[in-house]
Amino acid sequence: MEQFIFWAFAAMLVFSACMVITVRNPVHAVLFLVVAFVASSGLWLLLEAEFLAIALVLVYVGAVMVLFLFVVMMLDINIARLREGFIRYLPVGAAFAVATVVAMGLVVGSKNFGLERYAAPARKAAGYDNTAELGTLLYTRFLYPFEIAGLVLLVAIIAAIALAMRDTRQVKNPKPERQVEVRREERVRIVKMPAERRT
């Protein structure tokens, strides 16, 4: 039964991930991304990482992707232009993709990553609370990276505001004191051009 659920979710994940990059309509791509997130949270549930699975659905599917959907719908994306180079680059891209997948399949298979090389982790008891464990670890052993992750978010906020916020002043008024100071070099640039014959 567990095997069946795993394969179902895994197939759903691979299929929707492929659809994200191949469908024509960006809104559909976003919706397929939502499906991909749900499928991977299903896989996490099978790994008994309940908290992470629920956080993935709540945070990514519930908040981030909905916001993303709005952004995509607001933007007027010209799909024809995005696809211009698609056919031209397809042979090279496909060759690389196939080569990579084959190489990956050879290495990351059950031969090297199977149960005989890496034993499955022991099942935890029924009362095991991985939310509490996660919380304890985050604020003790992983405090330093946790704080830096917070800083990464701070940078994102500062950068987004600094880039998005235009000058609040809408009216353009000349500044006489700067107009007086203007120098020739700021207004005139001497460009040398060869003489041309009139045709």
Binding site: I148, L151, V155, A159
Partner: peptide, 9 residues
């Protein structure tokens, strides 16, 4: 990431 994100901006 902290380095790169700042540089992009």
């Amino acid at each position: 990431e902290l380095l790169s994100l700042s540089l992009y901006a």
